[in-house]
């Protein structure tokens, strides 16, 4: 990797100030950033390491909401007993990211900020109607994920926590790439008091998206049968060596039905 200046601030405000520099990149777990820098696909002039900032980790459940600190590691999301009671689907999802070593270091905030089109958390945020809280504002998941590796975050804006409303039932089903463990297709289904929400990762050319036709059908009848016959258009779906758009469209339906069956 190319040389950079290393900063290890100890507060959110100091980190935000350093990250305001257009040359700077913020590092949470570094599980994506460091490999990208090693391949010289990224060459930031400065790294702002958030691992010295305290108070950004932990899972709390209160008032029908789960709040997860941005620096909470995937392993800690996966093993949180409180989260498993409140939103088991989210605890399960965290256990399917990468491998045990990656889960010990990678963070929910880093994953959400990176918005990899095949990452898992964006699907959970969209389906559960999460709010992304930053050092300066609150952003609805709907407005946060703006495209491939693109988010509503401004230069220097830091995610501090993510707030998930507790659904009545939810499940995430992931068809994994056997080598990378990223989702070829991942579908998060959530039944909430305001209706059913279905979000898909891994399949879309512009990242995570919701499936309105599934949501309407499932809001009327929350059963796998309700969506079995719905054919999805292949417009905007990825085609690559792992799966073409037709296969991905098919997988979205299969994974959505499995998620409905598994929802709890």
């Amino acid at each position: 990797m190319y040389p950079f200046t290393y900063h290890r601030p100890d507060s959110v405000s100091a980190a935000a100030k350093l990250a305001g520099d257009a040359e700077a990149k913020v590092m949470a777990g570094g599980m994506t950033l460091l490999p990208t820098m090693k391949q010289r696909l990224a060459s930031p002039g400065a790294i702002v390491d958030l691992n010295g900032v305290s108070g950004l980790s932990g899972v709390t459940v209160a008032g029908g909401k789960v709040t997860i600190g941005a620096m909470t590691r995937h392993a800690d999301v996966h093993t949180s007993a409180e989260l498993r009671k409140a939103i088991p689907a989210l605890a399960d999802l965290a256990g399917w990211i990468g491998d045990p070593m990656v889960r010990h270091r990678g963070t929910i905030g880093g994953s959400v900020a990176n918005n990899d089109p095949a990452a898992d958390y964006p699907a959970a945020c969209m389906a559960l109607g999460a709010t992304i809280v930053t050092d300066r504002r609150e952003i609805a998941a709907e407005d946060f994920f703006t495209g491939l590796f693109d988010t509503a975050l401004e230069q220097g804006e830091l995610i501090t926590k993510i707030v998930f409303p507790v659904p009545q039932k939810a499940a995430y089903q992931k068809f994994r790439n056997p080598a990378s463990r990223y989702a070829i297709v991942g579908v998060f289904v959530a039944q909430t008091s305001a209706g059913v929400r279905v979000a898909v990762t891994g399949a879309g050319e512009s990242g995570v998206f919701r499936v309105k036709s599934f949501e309407d059908a499932l809001s009327k009848d929350f059963s796998a049968k309700a969506i079995e016959a719905i054919k999805l258009p292949t417009d905007g779906l990825n085609s690559d060596i792992h799966a073409d758009a037709v296969y991905r469209a098919h997988l979205i339906n299969v994974m959505a039905r499995r998620a409905v069956d598994a929802a709890k």
Partner: peptide, 20 residues
């Protein structure tokens, strides 16, 4: 793979400088 503060991590994807 090594253990960092008791947890297994991949040492090719950690900056030594960050492990003060």
């Amino acid at each position: 793979t090594v253990h960092v503060d008791g947890k297994a991590m991949k040492s090719c994807t950690l900056l030594a400088i960050g492990l003060e």
